[in-house]
Design a protein around this nucleic acid. Structure first.
Lengths: 196, 196
DNA sequence: CCTACCGATCGGTAGG
DNA sequence: CCTACCGATCGGTAGG
């Protein structure tokens, strides 16, 4: 299957890009991970950047889907609950495929100007969902009033930081991380006691 | 002055490493920023990695000094206040020289194995200060009980995220960022109302 | 700090 | 998917 080989390439590239960065990974490094020659990679991909672009695009799809789902499932619910669902969804995408998520979070600046602009717009739209929810909670008096842009940046970078230390199979399960991060995030915005 | 030229090199390199990463920046890129030839750089530095190492080491010094100062100034004070001082110090180092801080936060993996190990030990020690303070607050019942390692990772990556978006001279002053981030961080750990 | 230069490696192509 | 190969660029050295 052609599609399967593409995925293998992207998986190998994701983990190499995560570990060494896009610029620090050569086409031959990726090929080595697949036990083929460097030049043979071009039977499957148009360019090195093409691989990066595919990884970043798929990751963006997953973050957006997770947010869609979270917002649908908690439609009409209290804003704190909707925030928790958003956090849970985001952390889920992060831990489900750290390699891919890490590349999305940290390597998108290496894209070509055209692709960088396109992904930048999607990142902005995604971040705006968080800002709107935070603004809504602040206006409703449920969250402590805060600059929605700053608070969204704070939360998102705290969550995204997971890609710098998370290792599947490590001592902390995705569920444990998610539970703790949901609490920390909710508490950062809400005044009174939330749990415990 | 020899020292001054070294600093110029490190400053130019910091902002290039921040923007393009260590692997994505060539020795000739750095030289171009100083209006000299690529080979001329080697009159001042031993190697490209030598420049990275100098930047990372100086940043580590600054983070440690800020934490020392914060902990001295709040010695004997309530744990929440000590946490706030630690956050304020960390954010101050971040905004005082984002280029340098960004390289410390994101490019230290590009160091040679020996240097990476040495900086890794310092990073661990620094993070342990945060863990200990969080553990202390949890045990005293001032903070909501949380896994100190997870909570420290959450806070530190939230703060470090500043390097991904902060631009000196932008709409948000370092003071405004610091004030908001101090509140968000304190609230993430403490149950009851803190301010506002 | 410059010119001239080094071997190694880069992303990528041609032609099977 | 391979071999053979391309021009460009990499970090770095020699010798002023």
């Amino acid at each position: 299957m052609v599609e399967t080989r593409r995925r293998q390439i992207e998986d190998v590239a994701s983990s190499l890009f995560r570990e060494h960065g896009y610029a620090g990974t050569s086409v031959r490094d990726i090929a080595r991970g697949l036990a083929i020659q460097g030049a043979s990679l071009y039977a499957h991909v148009a360019s090195k950047e093409d691989v990066l672009w595919a990884i970043v695009r798929r990751a963006a799809d997953r973050f957006e889907s997770a947010a869609d789902e979270a917002q649908q499932e908690t439609f009409g619910r209290p804003v704190g609950e909707r925030l928790e669902a958003l956090v849970r969804g985001h952390v889920g995408v992060l831990t489900d495929d750290v390699g891919q998520a890490s590349v999305f979070v940290r390597e998108w600046r290496s894209l070509s100007p055209e692709h960088r602009a396109r992904i930048g717009a999607r990142r902005d739209a995604y971040e705006n969902r968080w800002r709107r929810l935070i603004a809504e909670g602040s206006e409703a008096g449920v969250f402590v009033p805060a600059d929605p842009a700053l608070a969204a940046a704070y939360l998102l970078t705290a969550l995204n930081g997971i890609v710098t230390w998370y290792r599947p199979g490590g001592p902390l399960s995705p569920r444990a991380i998610s539970a703790e991060y949901v609490n920390l995030s909710h508490r950062a915005l809400a005044p009174g006691r939330i749990d415990d």
